[in-house]
């Protein structure tokens, strides 16, 4: 399967991954179109987080292929995928705790011009100008995400919800075309839930596509136009949440449990 299948932004074909003797993902194929918000649901242990790892590149597949933005990225490292616009957030929101909030956003800026000490020594004016531009974009993004008053605080002091917003700010700075959100509502206060939902919607409006792993079906219903259901490492079904509610195997595997 080395021909690019379809013209979706992300296409995953028949990926599998085993950890030791456990087949975390047995067979997963899915796609996400440009600007689409696609849900990924399933009971615990279905392999959803492994799929996020496989797509972002932190987990190497045992087989299958990952296509992103018209290129086969199966063998690409996570930083190469990120540079192309494939970015992720984590179930437990992650930040660089000892960097300030604005530094957390600035450091995610695309471009490789910060990667040389020689540039620091010999192209200082250009380097400093670039850094000022990054500061300004980062400030604008913090403004957008309501984090501007925390600009100079170390990210380690943020609450779970604030860190989630910071994650979204970071992937915005990183030029995300597709963002993988691994349980974006985990560990967030109700007040910040709405903020996170609003931010995801406005990013979608600006053209960012999402693959959202989420347990809360209310959130899935609100955000996702299409939902992929996984169970035991396999894709069980794909459709709108309404369609999926009609399917007995899906209800048995997952929906029934949370609808009781």
């Amino acid at each position: 399967m080395n021909v690019e299948p379809g013209n979706a932004l992300l296409t995953v074909t028949e990926v599998r991954k085993a950890f030791g003797g456990v087949q975390a993902v047995a067979d997963c194929s899915l796609s996400v179109g440009a600007g689409e918000v696609c849900g990924l649901i399933g009971p615990n242990g279905a392999g959803k987080s492994t799929v996020v790892g496989l797509v972002s590149g932190s987990v190497r597949p045992d087989g299958g292929r990952v296509w992103f933005d018209g290129v086969d990225v199966t063998t690409w490292r996570p930083n190469q995928r990120a540079r192309r616009g494939l970015l992720r957030t984590f179930q437990i929101s992650q930040a660089w705790p000892r960097l300030t909030v604005i530094e957390n956003v600035m450091v995610a800026a695309p471009g490789t011009d910060g990667e040389s000490l020689l540039a620091v020594l010999f192209r200082r004016p250009a380097m400093l100008r670039k850094e000022r531009e990054r500061w300004q974009s980062a400030e604008a993004i913090l403004e957008q995400f309501g984090l501007i008053q925390l600009r100079d605080s170390p990210a380690g002091i943020l609450s779970g919800g604030q860190k989630r917003l910071l994650e979204l700010a970071r992937i915005t700075m990183g030029g995300a075309k597709l963002a993988l959100l691994d349980e974006p509502m985990a560990g967030i206060s109700p007040a910040l839930r709405t903020a996170v939902l609003d931010q995801v919607r406005s990013l979608q409006a600006s053209g960012v596509a999402f693959l959202v792993v989420e347990h809360d079906l209310g959130v899935v219903a609100e955000l996702c136009s299409r939902v992929v259901v996984m169970a035991l490492g396999r894709v069980l079904s794909v459709g709108t949440l309404e369609e999926l509610r009609q399917r007995q195997d899906v209800v048995d595997a997952y929906l029934g449990v949370s609808n009781q």
Binding site: S56, G57, S58, R77, P78, N79, Q80, A82, R83, L87, R88, F90, Q94, A95, W96, V107, A108, P110, T112, E115, R170, G174
Partner: peptide, 10 residues
């Protein structure tokens, strides 16, 4: 790990 998935080549 976060640096990697954010596009920073180590």
């Amino acid at each position: 790990e976060l640096a990697r998935v954010s596009g920073i080549s180590p």
